[in-house]
């Protein structure tokens, strides 16, 4: 058909014949593209944290030291730097491992193992989320939950670190009220970045649960491959990857 206009063929749209030069499916490539852009967002946020830390001479003096950011553990009033956050890190690494084991089982078309490992991944994600809820609530309302969040109505403006309390009576109740505050700028970055990461964990758990449901229903077994498990797996590993950096730049450095 010389001279006829050729329609663009979606199977050959990459050019260079039928095969993609990247040798991966469209869906997986697009997941990687998304992760690159999401990674740039987190990279930008953490770089902005560094800018704020080093630019302001007044802020830098009161900037919390990594190990001292969160020193509580449940059921103990002791001073335990890093332990709780290390636990959260470990949970996320383990759930990343169970995810990659689910992907491996998928490559062998072992449906039962995929279900088992994905279930553990979802449970790990939930444990992380609830751990973060406890961490945030400790920051906001104090370890004993008696720090006033309504008397001054400005909790998030206060720092999770530093600041002093005074005990006051409000309508017959004894509450702790903040009389001085730690570095507000630090608190803003802390809650925004760990919150943004926590939101990623939340959506990751949601996607994992939805894919797990499809695995149980046999959708991917009928399809002949478990690539969808691999794709949500990429997202889940990315969430773990971001936490590795958040851990370093908030809790260590």
């Amino acid at each position: 058909m010389a001279g006829a206009a050729t329609e663009i063929d979606s199977a050959q749209a990459w050019g260079g014949g039928w095969r993609s030069p990247f040798n991966v499916s469209y869906g997986k490539l697009m997941m990687w593209f998304f992760l690159i852009s999401d990674g740039l967002t987190f990279g930008g946020l953490l770089t902005a944290l560094g800018f704020a830390k080093f630019a302001n001479p007044e802020t830098a003096g009161s900037w919390p030291m990594g190990e001292e950011v969160f020193t509580h553990i449940p059921f103990s009033h002791g001073h335990n730097p890093l332990l709780y956050v290390a636990f959260m890190t470990f949970i996320l690494i383990v759930s990343s491992v169970t995810m990659v084991l689910a992907v491996e089982a998928g490559h062998r078309m072992d449906k039962k193992k995929v279900i088992f490992w994905m279930l553990l991944t979802v449970v790990g994600g939930l444990i992380f989320l609830f751990s973060q809820v406890w961490e945030w609530s400790t920051f906001i309302a104090g370890y004993d939950g008696d720090l006033s969040t309504w008397a001054d109505n400005a909790t998030l403006l206060h720092s999770p670190y530093g600041g002093e309390f005074a005990t006051e009576m409000h309508h017959g109740h004894e509450v702790k009220v903040m009389v001085s505050q730690g570095p507000t700028l630090y608190a803003n970055f802390f809650f925004f970045i760990t919150g943004f990461h926590g939101f990623h964990v939340f959506t990751g758990v949601l996607f994992n649960a939805l894919v797990l449901r499809n695995v149980i229903r046999g959708v991917y077994h009928k399809r002949g491959h478990y690539e969808m498990v691999e794709k949500v797996g990429l997202y889940w590993h990315f969430v773990d990857l971001v936490w590795v950096f958040v851990f370093t730049f908030f809790y260590l450095v």
């Binding site: 039928w18 991966v24 691999e230």
Partner: peptide, 12 residues
């Protein structure tokens, strides 16, 4: 003519 890359991912 559509290459299904996902099917290559199986292993023993």
């Amino acid at each position: 003519d559509i290459v299904e890359y996902s099917l290559h991912a199986h292993h023993s």
